[in-house]
Design a protein around this nucleic acid. Structure first.
Lengths: 371, 371
DNA sequence: CTGAAAGCGCTTACAG
DNA sequence: CTGAAAGCGCTTACAG
């Protein structure tokens, strides 16, 4: 059986009648090779299917052409959407992705993970774990020891200590709330995500700020916490209605919880948006097919992932030594969300006509959604 | 600035007053080291935080302790669920995961991908791309050249040519259909996935076989194709109702399309399950909170991913040389699906009481779902 | 139980 | 424009 041991650069060199480092020059596209020599080498490579051993190359170059992505599981819409974008852009730029799922970050796991990534000589790290509780401190205490650059995606509590790409989550709350007010709602409830999440706190703050700016008073019954799930949206809306029966609009902090509100409203016989206007966040694929189609706030998550890869690549590939994490300027890139108006809310008439050309398009139309 | 160049085994050896390969023996847990020598070395390692360079180790050992996973994007529920399970089990066994997303497999991309994985010296490959059209042929033609083991997850058309872990998709169709018949339905429609997908064809075949076994005739109006999306479920059900108004049950080939059917039924004023029973597939997290909660067929996808990793690890870590893909016995491991009864179908009375203790639990209960 | 030598497959200076 | 030498950081035989 032809046990095709992998070809080495030396064997290719012998076959082409040149030295090993001439082959090295060819496969690295160095300019200083005679055209006919280069062609002879390329010919051999084509015939044999030779591909250089990236482990050996990494050892000599001191870089692995690999980026580690630390993600928070694949169950949440945002994180997995970001991961897709990261993988795509990284592949375009010649990096492999080393995937690490960290479902319950604690000091020991973070330590083990970072040590493992360091041992594997990754060129850089994208930390795509949302900021929940004080989990960001786990990372902060390790920054000084990291020998490679690291970029955060999402979150930015307190003084930033690492470069990050994030979405303006307060603007998400403002966009949704301004829209509900413009549609005539005056008693707006909010269903937040878990307050331990930075995103959840920011979205809520955007809601509260907007109400205050419009001179509207807040009462306790208008704020309920969910846990991002459909059922928590159902439960929160039930509790809210019990204490504040005159609620006429809901800002749910994600589309799943908004779906829960739609279900609960339906089971109570409420009409949406006539009796209750609803706005979600995320613009998940299903949201345009909820009943009624959901008005939501879209986040440029794909762009966030791509920018993270580009920033990391710039640090890695730039002239000069690759900076350690602690040496990078901790700049924050903040991206803006975008409101998508559908049928679950009462927009001002002009706005509605501009967005929805025909009433019959309710179940069919899909927005172009450059997420 | 302490530019902490990474420690090498030689420096650790010097600090401990031993030779490099004694350190090597310690970090590889070889038995033939004197206890006090070993302790001295471990002490230095603890103090310095030394971690061996996996690139160098990979170069000498001829393996990278890395498994490549080729997945079909993260948008579909099944593939991303499988990926999570693979990552978890691989991490437990000391493998890093190299993630590759292949959204539109074609000959050129598959070639480039496999060459890249080979160059990066991955120890094995898990091919988690569903079998769509003839995309499996792209792989088949490359098997002979692969120098590492490869395991398929999902699909198994024709003669298997590689080991695979898959779910019995025909059984999915049978389980759903038997259940609908047991509930008294007699005019069952099916909304299939795209017929280019192996899973879709198998689920449909299970449905058709079961009807035939019960002596029920099939008519054209009972089969419509969807594309796994909510809106295609809406459209398919609309078309079906137009030509077969007496349809009293729908087997939708995934939960998204089942959701579309629920919406469409609702908008037509149909009661579920009284006028129309509905069964989906996948048991996505939201399905227990649809209106009404969806009866569905759960697939052991997590188990499939774990088994794939274990099988690959056995091939890699086994005694003797690691086999090339073409040298592995192409056995298929077939896992069985499981029916989960909720409120969107009319089960036989005994069965219903066993599963749902109280009618009030509709929106609250969540099944334990060892997927 | 421990160490000196050679080598994994590349690339990086250094010569010419 | 091209090649002989040294080395990246480990591990694998081989001695003792």
């Amino acid at each position: 059986m032809p046990r095709a041991r992998r070809l080495t650069i030396r064997e290719v060199a012998a076959a082409a009648g040149v030295s090993a480092q001439t082959v090295s020059r060819v496969i690295n596209d160095r300019p200083d090779v005679a055209p006919d020599t280069s062609e002879r080498v390329r010919q051999v490579i084509r015939e044999t299917g030779y591909a250089p051993n990236m482990l050996a190359r990494g050892l000599t170059q001191g870089r692995s052409h690999t980026i580690a992505v630390v993600a928070y599981g694949l169950d949440y819409f945002g994180p997995s959407f970001v991961l897709s974008a990261i993988e795509r852009r990284a592949a375009e730029r010649g990096y492999a992705i080393m995937l690490n799922l960290l479902l319950e970050p604690d000091a020991t796991k973070v330590d083990q993970l970072l040590n493992g990534l360091s041992a594997r000589q990754v060129d850089g790290i994208i930390w795509a774990i949302p900021e929940v509780g004080d989990n960001r401190d786990l990372l902060r205490s390790r920054v000084a020891e990291l020998s490679v650059p690291l970029i955060l995606v999402g979150g930015m509590t307190g003084v930033p200590f690492l470069p990050s790409v994030t979405i303006d989550n307060a603007a998400i709350g403002r966009l949704a709330t301004e829209h509900l007010l413009a549609g005539g709602s005056r008693k707006l409830g909010v269903i937040t995500g878990p307050p331990s999440w930075w995103e959840a706190r920011q979205r809520r703050a955007g809601w509260a700020d907007t109400l205050a700016r419009h001179g509207l008073d807040l009462t306790d019954c208008e704020v309920y916490e969910g846990d991002w799930t459909v059922q928590s949206g159902v439960a929160a809306f039930g509790a809210m209605r019990a204490s504040c029966p005159d609620i006429d609009a809901i800002f749910a902090s994600n589309d799943q919880m908004a779906l829960g509100v739609l279900h609960a409203a339906h089971s109570l016989g409420l009409r949406v948006p006539e009796d209750l206007a609803v706005v979600g966040v995320d613009n998940i694929a299903e949201s345009s097919h909820f009943w009624p189609p959901l008005t939501t706030v879209d986040q440029p998550l794909g762009q966030a992932g791509e920018l993270a890869v580009e920033a990391l690549d710039a640090l890695i590939s730039g002239s000069g030594p690759v900076p350690r994490a602690a040496e990078i300027a901790p700049a924050t890139t903040m991206l803006e969300p975008r409101l998508i108006v559908r049928d679950s809310s009462r927009p001002v008439v002009e706005q509605r006509e501009a967005t929805l050309p025909a009433a019959a398009s309710r179940l069919v139309s899909v927005e172009a959604d450059g997420r």
